[in-house]
Design a protein around this nucleic acid. Structure first.
Lengths: 127, 127
DNA sequence: CCATCTGTATTAATGTAATAATACAGCGAG
DNA sequence: CTCGCTGTATTATTACATTAATACAGATGG
């Protein structure tokens, strides 16, 4: 994962963990890594990770058993709803940006297809 | 303009000014508002605006005449290039987000058309 | 029982963003 | 010339993000 210094680290962790859950990489009911493990993995401070995970709890994507660990919610509808919400929010933001510089929907769709094809070509995995 | 507290204000000002220039709302060669005027308009501190405008200068979108004011560059190609770069960067980021949660290109395009239609309906101007 | 792991809480220190209040030098209009 | 505006620079202060170093309570496995 990429750590950008333009936003608070804990906010970026919220985004990444939410992605891991809504994408299914962290399946419903599964135990997630501990605060300390995630801190190592992300190269961040445990306190910073803690702050992010509390927010994920608040979003209803995880539940906490105080001395045992955190688990992805078993409420698959909640996960699906979060995924939809994430997609719509991203789409709306992207649309605002594109319309804001005077691009038409058809132009944006063409651009999107073109960039997605390039992504598939040299790829995000093996550039 | 919307001021979000999740990113530094000066960075958001860079984005907004860049949008105003690349969209043509601030035309090539035109004089842009002074640091103090923009500070009032954006509800920010002049020092914060200053920091953003120096960055816009550095991007080559404006030129500064020290005791006279700032002007949008007359280099229309530079403006067009900045606009393309902005569109591509936004598109790539959007694609990463959508692919990251497992959406296919066709799904994303459908979503985009749907949300853009809704935008046109109740609209961004008169909700 | 005991060592280890869990989430959580606390305190301090550091760096940076943002505001605030000025100050200066130079241009242009009256 | 004088006044007002321009960009720029400086200093101080406040707030917050982040790191760091601990500490505690309870669960789990040996």
């Amino acid at each position: 994962m990429r750590i950008d210094d333009s936003r608070p680290i804990w906010a970026q962790l919220v985004d990444e963990v939410r992605r891991l859950i809504t994408s299914g990489e962290w399946p419903p009911g599964g135990k997630i890594p501990s605060v300390r493990e995630l801190a190592l993995e992300f190269g961040a401070n445990p306190n910073t990770v803690q702050k992010a995970l509390v927010e994920i709890d608040r979003l209803g994507l995880t539940t906490t058993e105080r001395t045992v660990g955190r688990f992805v919610t078993t409420d698959r509808e909640a996960v699906a709803a979060a995924r939809s919400a994430l997609a719509e929010t991203s789409a709306d933001g992207f649309i605002d940006a594109m319309a804001g510089i005077g691009l038409e929907p058809s132009e944006v769709i063409s651009l999107l297809e073109q960039r997605w094809a390039q992504r598939a070509a040299h790829g995000k995995d093996v550039p």
